[in-house]
Design a protein around this nucleic acid. Structure first.
Length: 126
DNA sequence: ACGATGACGTTAT
DNA sequence: TATAACGCCATCG
């Protein structure tokens, strides 16, 4: 069932994905394509999602803050309800789903690592 | 090494 | 707006 088998040392590419996802602040969400683009991977949105698939639900990574470009959770039978968990967690952070099970990306979309929601101070890193 | 798959995205109908 | 098909690239058998 395509289980992760063993992931002792993921590729550096995945490490970047995980690191970026960890930077998503609570109450906000990012899309797979956005993550990919921020990493310099314009068309590899799939790999971003695939990387998150390898992450355990109890991982330190806020994987639940990543949704697709349509602003909705990607429901898949392979996740066996982890998708529900994702929605539940997002709602816990104050994110509201509309009648179409989608969220307002215009309102919750993560601006990026260079634009924290508090201080729009670009490139103020180190 | 090869073929098939997939937590996606974009464009066309 | 919803549905369908194609493209992209890493991972799996």
């Amino acid at each position: 069932m395509r289980r992760p088998a063993q992931v002792p040392s993921p590729s550096p590419r995945y490490a970047q994905i995980y690191a970026l996802v960890c930077q998503i602040p609570p109450g906000q969400v990012a899309t797979y394509g956005q993550i990919a683009q921020l990493l310099g991977l314009p068309s590899q949105a799939r790999q971003v999602g695939y990387a998150l698939f390898r992450v355990a639900p109890d991982s330190e990574i806020p994987w639940h803050r990543v949704v697709n470009a349509q602003g909705e959770i990607s429901y898949a039978p392979q996740r066996q309800g982890n998708d529900e968990l994702q929605r539940w967690r997002l709602e816990s952070e104050g994110i509201i789903f509309d009648g179409a099970d989608r969220i307002n990306l215009k309102k919750y979309r993560w601006p990026g690592p260079l634009a924290p929601e508090k201080s729009p101070r670009a490139q103020s890193k180190a």
